Simulated scan of single mutants.
Amino acid sequence: MIDVAAHLAAVLEAVVPLAPAARDVAAARGRVLRHPVHAALDVPAFDSSAMDGFAVRDLTAPVTLRVVADLPAGTDLDPRMDAGDAARIMTGAPVPTDATAVVPFEDTSSGLAGGLDPVTVVDAPRAPGAHIRRRGSDVRAGDLVVSEGTRLTAARIGAIAASGVAMVSVSRAPRIAVVSTGSELVAPGRALRRGQIPESNSVLLAGLAEETGAEVVLRTSVGDEGEGPREAIAAAEAAGADAVVFSGGVSAGAYEVVKNTLGDLMRFDRVRMQPGKPQGFGRTPAGTLLFGLPGNPVSAAVSFELFVRPALRALEGDAELGRATVRVALAEGWRARAERTQYVPVALDRTDPARWLARPTARGARGLGDADGLAVIAASAVDLVAGDVVTVALW
């Protein structure tokens, strides 16, 4: 058997990142930035008011001031202000050059209702510059806004747009084909004869791929005999797939169709993990990545998390290939395996915010659906007891 890290390293070594392309920042959410973004301008671009109120010069309160201008957001006015003058100003408007602070409406006797009539300031500004956002106080032109390899969230594309940048260089979504193998498989909802089961792995793996940010271009199943896997690869490449993920057909049985037909394209290994020991990986002459995962749904999901998901993110140039992790105490004991690392679906009990507990879910697909993540149980001759702390990769 080989280690999980060795198998993952072989997978990532074969990944060639997708070519970047320019995209409008408004259409880039969810994509991975391939070049760093630097601010095109200062943010704010000018000294601006942080409050609705009155721009004033140095003063002591209480004092009544003459209102010489009305400054809404977007104005380009810069009125002269002498001692005893004020300018009504709205949040975001440029602060007059002569002003030293902004007094909020609530610190005046009449507030907004006074219009442009003289205003009485009840409370003086606490210091020069009060309620003024200085030019460049958030970002200076040329400053780094978002680093290369970052997946763009709504907040990040908002920061990029605010810095004056309209176009970004990103990866497109990886394209993936998902192929279930097994002559016993029948589409969900159809009548079953003896020996048949509903086909669910392609639904599961396609969903995991889409949650990763990939585009599923083909989802199908093939039987245990014939050239189904090779035909599926041809169809996937015709659809532009960057990766093909097979479930089933990679173990040690007599009808392992992926292993029996794709030995010239894929290597098949036993990996020190539970579940998911049998794994296959390779590339076609065209460069399409080929993954062979076990057929058990939980084994397939765990294998996807450990090997396929990092590969898809590496295709995009994502700097973060793995899931976020937390250290959590087990709610109950767990039997360790001396020769294999275990990946256990767990639900997180957050009743006590200061002490989360990880509780293994029920076996099978239903238990997988209840899981919040995977607890990593290191290979050991010593069993774990309730309260022992483990690493949980969060879903």
Rank of each mutant, 00 (worst) to 15 (best):
R340H: 10
A238M: 02
A154G: 11
A124G: 02
D352N: 11
V178K: 00
A6C: 07
P360V: 01
R363E: 00
N260M: 13
V16W: 05
R193C: 11
A324C: 06
V67P: 09
V257E: 02
R31W: 04
P36W: 00
T120D: 02
T341A: 15
G195F: 11
R57Q: 02
S299F: 04
L293K: 02
R219C: 00
L306I: 13
G276M: 08
A173R: 14
P275W: 02
P345I: 00
V271H: 13
T220Q: 04
A154W: 05
A311K: 05
L59D: 04
V346L: 06
E13G: 10
V95P: 03
A241M: 11
D370W: 07
P285E: 01
G74K: 00
G367S: 01
G240D: 04
P125K: 12
A239I: 12
G182W: 03
R313V: 03
L116H: 10
P104C: 11
E215F: 00
V389L: 05
R340Q: 13
M266T: 08
E215Y: 05
D78A: 09
S299N: 01
A347E: 06
I233C: 15
V68W: 13
R340I: 10
M167T: 15
V37E: 00
S303C: 13
D85M: 14
G228D: 12
A73D: 12
A83Q: 02
F246I: 11
P118A: 14
P297C: 01
N201V: 03
P94Q: 11
A232R: 10
T75Q: 12
F54W: 14
A73M: 07
K277F: 06
P345N: 07
G111C: 12
G142I: 07
V146S: 12
G364I: 03
R350P: 13
R156K: 12
V346E: 11
R194M: 15
V146Y: 03
A324I: 06
A161D: 01
L185A: 07
P118M: 05
T284I: 09
R126W: 08
G223H: 04
G317E: 06
E231W: 08
A154C: 04
A161S: 00
A386G: 14
